[in-house]
């Protein structure tokens, strides 16, 4: 290319146009962010993102459903029999071999112990805390029912055992364990 004065001027102009266009496009993109981000959960919603619960009043064999982030959470004080059954079940019998416990790595095995572990690794096998939403299509399963002394989803017939693991029916995964941790021996913070 012959570099005449005119050419140099032209390329300087091209650079100016491209640089200005880039800055303008970047500015527009940044200015759009507030319009998108305003739809995300706001501060008042996030403030309710964690729920405290004291399990001390729950007697053996008693369960409650509490609301956490608008979803049902099953908290159950399991009987000795239920714990025993859950522990004895060989992993090979499970449809879903991973724990589905958000406090553990995603590949943690679905042992009964892993189903009752909190974020600090504390295990209290008496208390099972899980999100009460069937992993099939989102119905709320019924407690103390089904073929495995656990939960039964009436919508499409999924059976969960006494550790909330899927055993029979169309649901693909065990019931999810929400993130939680013990603040005392019986008190937990979910979320």
């Amino acid at each position: 290319m012959t570099s005449t004065v005119e050419n140099a001027g032209a390329s300087r102009r091209d650079f100016l146009y491209i640089a200005t266009g880039t800055v303008g496009a970047a500015g527009t993109a940044l200015a759009l962010w507030p319009f998108i981000d305003q739809m995300n959960p706001d501060a008042s919603v996030l403030a309710l993102a964690s729920t405290e619960f004291d399990m001390a009043p729950l007697e053996e064999g008693q369960g409650v459903t509490i609301k956490w982030r608008g979803k049902p959470v099953f908290i159950r004080h399991r009987t000795k029999k239920e714990i025993e059954e859950a522990r004895k079940t060989p992993l090979a019998d499970l449809k879903d071999p991973v724990a589905r416990n958000l406090n553990l790595p995603p590949d943690a095995k679905a042992t009964d112990e892993n189903r009752v572990k909190d974020a600090n690794g504390k295990v209290n096998e008496k208390y099972l805390v899980q999100i009460g939403i069937c992993t099939h299509l989102g119905c709320v399963p019924l407690g103390e029912s089904g073929d495995y002394d656990g939960w039964f989803c009436p919508c499409h017939g999924s059976h969960y055992d006494s550790a909330g693991r899927i055993r029979k029916g169309p649901a693909p995964r065990n019931l999810d364990i929400p993130p939680y941790k013990y603040t005392t021996d019986t008190q937990i913070v979910i979320g």
């Binding site: 507030p34 981000d37 305003q38 995300n40 706001d42 501060a43 919603v45």
Partner: peptide
């Protein structure tokens, strides 16, 4: 006031 205090960027909008 909810917009002004809680909504993301609400004060700006």
């Amino acid at each position: 006031e909810h917009i002004m205090r809680d909504v993301n960027w609400g004060w700006l909008l």
